[in-house]
Structure formats: C-alpha cells, structure tokens
C-alpha cells in the first residue's frame, strides 16, 4: 500500500528543491503555499496524533488556513503592491543553490544517523526533511537579494521547526509552541508588508543591498 506519510515528506523535499531553483517571485510564493499545506498535513498522518478532539481539528484547520492560504495571499499582495521585479536576483547562482540543496540533504541524512535518537517508527525521515527544510530556509535568507525572499526563507525555517516538533512529540499538546511561532510569523509578514512599501518609496526598489547606503 502507498505510504502517504512518506509521499508527503518526499513532496516537501520536492518543494524545497523547487524553491531553490525557482526564478520568479510569484512562483516561489506558490511553492511556499504548497509546502505550507503539505507541512500542516503531516501530523494527520502520524501514528498517535490523528483527529482526537474538536480542539485538534480547529488547530489543524487554522494551521492549514494560515500556512497555506493567508500568508501566501499576503505575500502575493505585497509582491503586487510594490511592483517588485519578477526576477529573484540571487547572490548565489541557481545551479549552485540546487547543488547546495543536495549537500543539505546529504548532511541531514548523516546528521540524523549520527544523532542516534530513539525515534518512533517512520519518524527519521521527518527529521531529515525538517533539517533540510530549515537549512534551505536559512540558505534562502542568505543567498537572495530581495527582502521578500528573506521572509520566505524565514517561513521555510518555521516549517522546518514545525516538522521537528512533529517528529519529536508524541502528543499534539506541544503544538502550542509552534502555534505561537506561527502567530509571530504572521505578524512578521504583516510588518514586512509595511516596511517593504516604505523601502520601495525610499529607494524605488526592494533590493536589500541598497540598505547598505543607510549607514553613515
């Protein structure tokens, strides 16, 4: 039988990869939306989680809505409203970024193997996935010029943290922490929208390298 959890995790890795290779901002945001949906679906497929109570259901639905719809919609609005150029403008080239993704995954596998955590059945892959996602998120923040890609990188980082929580926890009560992080993130995206507009007013562009001009 098809193991849906593994399929979803593999699809998350796929979105990680695509995000490293995508050249258009809008495409990147869409990939993030897909990743958000996939990430918020994972706990449903874990053993011992499931739809236990009404609270849990509400929690999952909220998660899905925020990660999959709300944040991407806001990001797209931000992209459109400040009329950012569609190209992503990387510091590190696309080919190198994709190969970096490979290296992240390889080191995540070695890391997970060397940690010797006593994880429940089938959780090791989640951990690998989570580490890769976090590393890629950090890498995106580092290697792309635009302010908006840094927010996206941060979002990805958060997805990774959420996955780690999934891998390590046995019970969904621990999600409170991640939910808090998610709300922080939501606020961050809103603030970013405002700042982005202001940077755009000041410099006619949202290239973060221009912020270097602000120093004395």
């Amino acid at each position: 039988m098809i193991n849906f959890l593994e399929v979803i995790l593999v699809l998350i890795l796929l979105t990680v990869l695509l995000s490293l290779g995508s050249t258009r901002l809008v495409a990147l945001v869409r990939i993030m939306a897909l990743q958000g949906v996939l990430v918020s679906l994972t706990p449903l497929l874990l053993k011992g989680h499931g739809l236990a109570s009404l609270g849990a259901v509400a929690f999952y639905v909220a998660m899905l809505a925020i990660k999959g719809v709300l944040i991407p919609a806001m990001l797209i609005r931000a992209v459109k409203s400040v009329s950012i150029q569609r190209e992503i403008e990387p510091f590190v080239g696309y080919h190198a970024s994709i190969l970096m993704g490979l290296i992240f995954l390889l080191s995540a596998v070695f890391m997970t193997n060397s940690l010797h955590l006593s994880l429940p059945e089938g959780r090791a892959l989640i951990l690998i996935c989570a580490v890769t996602t976090m590393a890629t998120g950090l890498f995106l923040m580092l290697a792309r010029k635009k302010a908006i890609t840094q927010v996206i990188g941060y979002l990805m980082l958060e997805n990774g943290i959420y996955l780690i929580g999934n891998a390590l926890s046995q019970h969904h009560s621990l999600y409170i922490v991640e939910f808090g992080v998610l709300l922080d993130l939501l606020v961050a995206v809103m603030v970013m929208g405002i700042i982005l507009t202001n940077i755009n007013h000041a410099f006619d562009d949202v290239d973060t390298t221009l912020l270097g001009q602000l120093k004395d």
């Binding site: 593999v10 990869l17 290779g21 490979l102 995954l105 892959l125």
Partner: peptide, 19 residues
C-alpha cells in the same frame, strides 16, 4: 535538467538513511 538530477539524487540519498 539539474533539478531533475537533484530529484533523482534526493531519492538516492534517502535510501541511505531510512527508506
């Protein structure tokens, strides 16, 4: 094309770890 290679390679690396 490099993306397609990395996809294949992802699968290969995953066989090392768990699957």
């Amino acid at each position: 094309i490099l993306t397609s290679f990395v996809l294949g390679f992802f699968a290969v690396i995953l066989t090392m770890g768990v699957l």
